[in-house]
């Protein structure tokens, strides 16, 4: 039962939970009913009785969890009700199908941003500004040192990096879902003519994107049993889990790179163990988080995912917005 105005959504050991609707958001443990903001591995889990997401997210979820899962889909902006609570999905601009989730109960509005970005990305729907009373925002990159460059500049850096080493295989590590497709799309807009190979996990997601009507440039499916000499001078996209994997150790004449927002910090770049870091992120940077809060007109803000101490203090000092901490229940 709700005890006060600020706890429609609580933080539990399984993730965010709305007690009135009796529904979890991106739970980390199996629960009865789960709203899924997007299909990145750390935002859903196996074994929930019921999943609810956008249509696009469901395509990928089925691909990852199996076709037999019980999943209900709703279009963006289409309101539905659970236990009397009005709920709707809104584009968050993070990856294909990613959404913010709005809760509306007795004229009190709550918005969970999920992972979001404000930069342009042609592979998914653009972030929609949604007005709310309470905002639960991600804060992965909640420091002013994070300020993203235009993705097209990063794509050009990547193509230069590949072209300058024609005798090497240039292996770029990036997340299979979202980041890979965005990179491919940005690279397709440059005059890069070399071959591009993608790991099967990326190849598979590319097909999911195509099913949803998003055109992804054609790539060769990477087969590690094939003669590696064929790859010389080409760009190979692999998921980060394969970095330092056994078969890479046998490869000579390779250079490795990693595409992530964290790569904008030299210490992290050096520590990462990749030869080169390319800064590109599907999350909001500092300015984008602050703008989003402002545009949402929220009076109360919670932060979720990431260090938020700097954001907390900044909002307290510079604005009249309430920064709240989650009530925690088991």
């Amino acid at each position: 039962m709700r005890q006060s105005i600020t706890d429609l959504i609580k933080y539990t050991s399984s993730g965010l939970y709305c007690s009135v609707a009796d529904v979890w958001i991106d739970p980390s443990k199996p629960v009865k009913r789960a709203l899924i903001t997007h299909a990145h591995m750390d935002h859903f889990t196996f074994g929930c009785d019921e999943y609810i997401s956008t249509f696009e997210t469901a395509i990928i979820l089925k691909d990852r969890l199996g076709k037999e899962i019980n999943i209900k889909t709703y279009d963006y902006n289409k309101e539905f009700k659970i236990n009397g609570t009005k709920i709707s999905f809104h584009p968050s601009g993070h990856i294909l199908g990613s959404s913010q989730i709005k809760f509306n109960l007795a004229e009190e509005k709550w918005l969970i941003t999920g992972d979001f970005k404000r930069q342009k990305d042609e592979t998914c729907k653009e972030y929609e500004i949604v007005k709310t009373d309470f905002l639960i925002s991600e804060s992965t990159f909640g420091l002013p040192i994070f300020k993203w460059d235009e993705p097209q500049n990063t794509a050009i850096d990547i193509t230069k990096w590949v072209s300058h080493s024609p005798k090497k295989v240039s292996i770029l590590f990036c997340y299979s879902l979202g980041k890979a497709q965005r990179l491919l799309n940005e690279i397709s807009k440059t005059n890069f003519k070399n071959n591009i190979h993608t790991h099967r996990s990326i190849f598979k997601v590319n097909n999911c994107y195509k099913k949803s009507g998003i055109d992804i440039v054609k790539t060769n499916k990477f087969d590690q049993t094939k003669n590696i000499a064929d790859l010389k001078g080409s760009l190979l996209l692999l998921p980060p889990a394969l970095h330092r994997s056994a078969f890479l150790k046998n490869l000579k004449d390779i250079q490795t790179g990693f595409a992530s927002g964290w790569m904008s910090i030299r210490a992290l770049r050096k520590r990462s163990g990749y030869d080169k870091g390319f800064s590109i992120s599907d999350h909001a940077d500092w300015d984008a988080i602050l703008n989003t809060i402002k545009e949402s007109q929220a009076k109360n803000v919670f932060f979720h995912h990431g260090d938020s101490e700097a954001l907390n203090r900044y909002l307290k000092e510079k604005t009249s917005i309430n920064v709240l901490e989650f009530g925690y229940t088991k």
Binding site: L143, P144, I145, K147, I265, R266, A267, D307, Y314
Partner: peptide, 22 residues
């Protein structure tokens, strides 16, 4: 705020160069 950033970056020269971008 600079000090918070410093905790992440670990180098004053780099923190200031990142903030200068802005």
């Amino acid at each position: 705020l600079i000090d918070y950033c410093y905790l992440k970056v670990g180098d004053s020269a780099e923190v200031i160069s990142l903030l200068l971008d802005d």
